[in-house]
Design a protein around this nucleic acid. Structure first.
Length: 732
DNA sequence: TCATAAACTTAGAAGAATGAAG
DNA sequence: CTTCATTCTTCTAAGTTTATGA
């Protein structure tokens, strides 16, 4: 059989060299095209673009026989809207209660909005804040100063340490600098290493701090002002209904912060001008006024798309879109459709699984590859894995897995180790189906070597085409959604309907976590995580110490307690002298800090209000109290005799305190464990994108858990359709 | 039929708001 | 009430899939 396959495949395998990352890369077509476009005169461009619009319009008309009806309906809505323009229209559009609409190529009939909000112009730094080069202050033209400022702002971050980031930044910085005539005071900047951004950084930091220091009233005023500025852009009218816009702000210029080893990280992301922006509205919509002295790049009327505005970005020459918010009807409908589509998969999954198991032994290499890929996507929730270009970070998904990304340990263990989306590492040592293992070995056979594609016949479009044979609209990503929601359903089914809301939520989150782990949703451990873990450990230690002290105190009051319950006092010698001393030190140090801070804060306040300052002696007296406490601890250590507060001078009271301490130790340890388990797992992504929200709604209803425990305000708005349509018996 | 452009979803980090502990 | 850690929101990068045009 193997021989047969080998023969069979050797001819098919001929262009094996193409499996190599470099060899497989096609010529840079897109780049050339982009350059050409820039060169062509704007008039020519307009002509081309408007032709394109006409074509699109006829296409969408042809494709949408249902449109006529909709249009009339929409017109009515639009008229109603224009008469009440701007007025709060609280009537809700419950699209999920409507009959299903067949044609979704037309997204709207009328679309009106006020364009986008542009970021503020650059404000030059005060003249005493400069970049220093070889120790000398540089007078930069404003344009270059802005770019230098972007770097200065990141000085403390990892980006600033990344050589690629430095190099890309510096190139673009120099190019801006030279374009604007170089340094005003003749300093010739050549080397990055001679640049000192620290003064700029300090100033930027100081400005930030200053803003934080403002009184809450001042902050409120600033917020009000900001809201007023944003108001016109926050909403649009879609078929006459007022809907929220998502990202209504143009992205401000900055240094591009690519994830992972991105070759372009640090490059200047240029400022977007109104001339770069294309607006999309209905034909009769009033065209929003462009910023003074500017013109819009283009006005389009394409009702087959959801975007309101778009512009081309200069890092990888792709588009950025202004679109509706997550709580909008359009987004809601597509979300709903996504989950319905993945629910549909349960009707086909058995056939699909049976089929790929069978095809694992197919004599046609392509079919085997399809079978293995489908298996990996289904079982390990891998992404499709499209091809990437050389000027992006080297990350992979299923179809783009390479030789070096898996190692095989007979009889059937596979170790996956690769960087996936966002350069997040996927590392799993797992057992796989015997035949899958065999196939993977075949896919790695010489002449394949590191750098070669495992699935050299396959790409997402071939795979998806194959999947569509089973179910209309089935693609690789549907499996991820299906398996995520299926996992959630199964996990929720295991939760007993008992206990407090907190306990139920712990279970819910555990279910959520199972899904997040399946999807490999990670987060970098917060800066303060280790520290806060350390703190918690110390806290538990201190509770323990306190507990022991109280037990000693009990014996001091009544020796007979020991005989009555020797077990209770067993731990009384658990802490060594050294351990006790270090706890003492910590407790005392914290007390000192507390008083220092209290003193400083109080005087700050008094200074501000013109009152008399606390004398230094006050602080000293406080600190003396701490010293006193310290002496008592030392004595305690020597004599073994504990001194406790006068209010605790009875066996009962001490026992009550001990109970409290034990409770605290329990809760703190549980919290700590939960925190540790969650420290590298991001629950939010699966909750937002993979778990059918109706599962959570049903859970809340069935288990009598308030919805807001499960969904934040924004998520409740996003999932309104689910909240209003699922009951406690709803199942995925 | 293909490559590539376009359009849309998914993703973690950063920033802002909130709330728990002292 | 303040402080600081946690939680929520915003931001925009990075994927997938579909549409388009040579």
């Amino acid at each position: 059989m193997t021989v047969k396959l080998k023969n069979d495949s050797s001819s098919e395998d001929e262009p094996l060299g193409n499996g190599g990352r470099k060899a497989a890369r096609p010529a840079r077509g897109s780049k050339r095209r982009a350059v050409k476009e820039e060169e062509s005169s704007s008039g020519e461009q307009e002509e081309v673009l408007s032709q394109e619009v006409k074509k699109r319009k006829t296409v969408s008309k042809r494709r949408a026989p249902a449109r006529k009806v909709k249009e009339e309906e929409g017109d009515r809505d639009a008229k109603k809207e224009s008469s009440v323009d701007g007025e709060e229209d609280s009537e809700e559009f419950k699209w999920w209660e409507r009959e299903e609409e067949k044609d979704d190529s037309v997204k709207w009939v009328t679309l009106r909005h006020n364009g986008v909000m542009f970021p503020p112009e650059y404000t030059p730094l005060p003249s005493h804040v400069r970049l220093y080069y070889g120790g000398k202050a540089v007078e930069l033209p404003a344009e270059a100063e802005e770019v230098a400022g972007f770097f200065a702002a990141l000085l403390q971050s990892d980006h600033a340490q990344n050589p690629v980031f430095q190099k890309n930044f510096f190139e673009d910085f120099l190019s801006v600098l030279n374009k604007h005539g170089g340094a005003r005071n003749g300093i010739d900047i050549q080397e990055f290493s001679k640049c000192d951004f620290s003064k700029m950084h300090a100033y930027i930091q100081q400005q930030k701090d200053q803003k934080k220091q403002l009184s809450s009233h001042e902050k409120k005023l600033l917020k009000q002002e900001k809201d007023k500025q944003e108001e016109p852009y926050k909403f649009c009218y879609l078929d006459g209904r007022k809907e929220q816009v998502g990202n209504f702000k143009i992205e401000p210029p900055d240094l591009f912060r690519g994830r992972g080893a991105h070759p372009k990280t640090g490059k200047l992301k240029r400022r977007v001008q109104p001339e770069d922006v294309v607006l999309n509205l209905d034909k009769d919509a009033p065209i929003p006024e462009p910023p003074a002295g500017h013109k819009w790049g283009e006005i389009r009327h394409d009702n087959t798309v959801q975007w309101l505005c778009m512009w081309r970005e200069n890092i990888s020459n792709s588009f950025k879109y202004v679109r509706l918010a997550a709580n909008s009807s359009l987004k809601g409908m597509s979300d709903f459709k996504k989950f319905e589509k993945s629910r549909e998969l349960k009707n086909y999954i058995d056939i699909i699984r049976a089929d790929y198991r069978k095809n694992l032994k197919s004599k046609v290499m392509l079919d085997r590859q399809i079978a293995v890929a489908t298996y990996l996507i289904d079982v390990f929730a891998l992404r499709a894995g499209g091809e990437k270009s050389e000027d992006e970070a080297d990350t992979v998904g299923c179809c783009s897995l390479r030789y070096e990304h898996i190692s095989l340990k007979p009889p059937n263990t596979v170790v996956f180790d690769f960087l996936g989306k966002d350069s997040i590492r996927y590392y799993q040592e797992v057992e796989v189906d015997k035949q899958v293992f065999k196939n993977l070995s075949i896919f790695k056979r010489p002449p394949k070597e590191p750098g070669h594609q495992l699935f050299d016949r396959l790409d997402p479009s071939i795979l998806n085409k194959h999947l569509q044979n089973y179910m209309p609209g089935l693609t690789a990503k549907v499996f991820r959604t299906y398996n995520a929601s299926k996992t959630m359903q199964d996990q929720l089914d295991l939760i007993p309907n008992e206990g407090s809301v907190t306990e139920k939520m712990v279970r819910y989150n555990a279910a959520n976590r199972a899904v997040a782990i399946l999807c490999n949703h990670q987060r970098t451990v917060g800066r303060s995580h280790a520290q806060s873990m350390q703190k918690a450990t110390e806290k538990i230690e201190e509770y323990q110490w306190q507990k022991i002290r109280y037990k000693k105190a009990i014996l001091q009051l009544d020796e007979s307690e020991l005989k009555a319950n020797p077990k209770f006092f067993k731990e009384i010698n658990d802490l060594t002298k050294e351990e006790q001393m270090s706890i003492h030190k910590r407790v005392l140090e914290r007390e000192r800090e507390k008083y220092q801070k209290k003193f400083a804060r109080e005087n700050e306040k008094r200074k501000f209000e013109g009152e008399e300052l606390l004398p230094e002696s006050q602080l000293e007296s406080w600190l003396a109290d701490v010293e006193e406490m310290g002496k008592e601890y030392v004595e305690e250590l020597e004599t073994g005799l504990v001194t406790v507060k006068p209010t605790l001078q009875s066996v009962e009271k001490l026992k009550a305190q001990i109970d409290k301490l034990e409770q605290r130790i329990r809760t703190t340890s549980i919290q700590m464990k939960d925190k540790e388990d969650n420290s590298t797992v991001a629950l939010s992504t699966s909750k937002i994108s993979y778990i059918d929200p109706r599962l959570s709604v049903a859970f809340c209803k069935k288990y009598d858990v308030p919805l807001e425990k499960v969904f934040t305000k924004t998520l409740r708005e996003k999932f309104k359709w689910a909240i209003e349509s699922a009951d406690e018996n709803w199942r995925f």
